[in-house]
């Protein structure tokens, strides 16, 4: 055990750091794109704030198509785009591009489902007070759904963490890359187990932290 850690500890630490790096920035950018998409998907529904049924249907289809592409295929498919943005197609920074593109529509649906939970009565109350659409989105829908949005964020983060492992197989860094290079290509089972253990620990920590935060943020259970 000690010899294993002495030999591979630095590598595993670096892998963990890279995984967290990719997860953090991919999640961040996925929300930058996905949050407005989710808002748009919600408010353009019939009977919502800005009904636009045709746009809603088409946009919904676009989101569905993006979501139905398997991540590995999408990653290869958008390689030229990745190169255009990051300047290279390998490494952690390059992995963030397909991770973001793939997660954004997923995040959009998560956000949409959170926003749809907001009580229509509260939205009507805001309308009756003379709030405009922008104010209702910012001051009512997003605020009232904070606990649910946080739970969605934890699911998205963990999903993206899982996807970073796949990018490891095609040249990005992280724990997935270690598992692939040492565990798969060189039959080093101990390395494989170590990465799996680390991934499990990361997922548990993220889940637990978000659980606490979202419970604290919810003013309904006091």
């Amino acid at each position: 055990m000690t010899t294993f850690l002495a030999q591979n500890g630095a590598l595993l630490l670096q892998g963990t750091a890279e995984t967290l790096y990719m997860t953090f920035f991919s999640t961040l950018f996925a929300y930058v794109l996905g949050l407005p998409m989710g808002v748009l998907l919600t408010i353009t529904q019939p009977n919502s704030l800005m009904p636009a049924p045709r746009f809603n249907t088409i946009f919904g289809w676009v989101v569905n198509i993006l979501r139905s592409l398997p991540f590995l295929i999408l990653m290869i498919f958008i390689l030229p785009f990745t190169r255009l943005i990051v300047g290279t197609s390998i490494g952690c920074n390059a992995a963030i591009v397909p991770l973001t593109v793939s997660a954004a529509p997923f995040v959009a649906r998560m956000v949409q489902s959170s926003l749809q939970e907001v009580d229509t009565g509260v939205i009507e109350a805001a309308r009756s007070m003379g709030a405009d659409t922008w104010q209702i989105v910012c001051k009512v829908m997003l605020v009232e759904s904070v606990p649910s949005l946080l739970r969605g964020l934890s699911i998205s983060t963990i999903t993206i963490l899982g996807y970073t492992a796949i990018t490891g197989a095609v040249g990005a860094g992280g724990l997935g890359n270690l598992a692939y290079r040492f565990g798969y290509l060189r039959y080093q089972n101990d390395m494989m187990y170590a990465t799996i253990l680390l991934l499990i620990v990361l997922v548990c920590i993220i889940q637990a932290v978000f659980e606490v935060i979202s419970r604290r943020a919810d003013k309904r259970n006091r």
């Binding site: 009565g121 009507e124 009756s128 943020a217 003013k219």
Partner: peptide, 12 residues
């Protein structure tokens, strides 16, 4: 307007 179900912001 006052509603039967109050319609208050629960997070505020």
């Amino acid at each position: 307007v006052v509603f039967q179900g109050y319609n208050l912001l629960m997070q505020k």
